[in-house]
Design a protein around this nucleic acid. Structure first.
Length: 184
DNA sequence: GTTCCGATGCTT
DNA sequence: AGCATCGGAACG
């Protein structure tokens, strides 16, 4: 059962990134469990694509939550983001790592440990999936899930945004502490 | 174990 | 020019 529109629209990017830990990423016969996510905020966030205002690439970040924002980086890796909030609180959450739960027989157990790797593993790409609605059971969606009693959330600075000045240090990366599928 | 580098194409 | 990355090579 896909998470509802309001699940995404009622949360700021930072809260959504935190709350996505333990949720399931589902696409076709493939299922992963989210263990790492990063929040990217609005124009004030100097690490966010939104820092340039609305552009052709990032316009989904300024719309309602619950849509896929998928883009290509370094000419070869797709990044899967979930839009958060509403027009008042633009932003998105980068899904950085999942545990492989189902549909990955024979795959490297670390094939979901990284934002580029998980897109490759799930067959998620910008050309096919940018802008797709995540609230339908058909196609890519997220399903409810919980952290275990023993699992704790770790926060840290976001990866790969050293250019962003003081924003680079903000604790907007969330992960399940000690989980082996976390990207680093 | 660490650090460095090239791949490869879209964005500002 | 630089990038919300990755895998392999080089080094010690």
């Amino acid at each position: 059962m896909a998470l509802s529109r309001s699940f995404y629209t009622q949360r700021s990017p930072a809260v959504l990134a935190h709350d996505l830990l333990g949720k399931y990423l589902v696409f076709g016969d493939k299922t992963g469990r989210i263990v790492e996510a990063e929040a990217y905020l609005g124009p004030e966030d100097q690490a966010s694509h939104a820092r340039f205002g609305v552009t052709k690439r990032n316009e989904l970040m300024f719309g309602p939550g619950g849509f896929a924002y998928v883009y290509l980086i370094y000419g070869m890796h797709d990044m899967f983001n979930v839009t958060a909030g509403s027009k008042r609180t633009p932003g998105a959450v980068l899904v950085r790592a999942v545990e492989l739960v189902e549909g990955f027989r024979g795959a490297d157990p670390k094939a979901g440990a990284g934002p580029g790797k998980l897109c490759r593993a799930f067959g998620i790409g910008r050309v096919q999936h940018n802008g797709c609605d995540l609230t339908t059971d058909r196609g890519i969606h997220l399903a409810d899930g919980r952290l275990r009693r023993s699992e704790k959330v770790a926060t840290s600075p976001r990866i790969g945004v050293d250019y962003a000045g003081e924003w680079a240090a903000r604790p907007l990366r969330f992960s399940i502490a000690g989980n082996p599928a976390v990207s680093r």
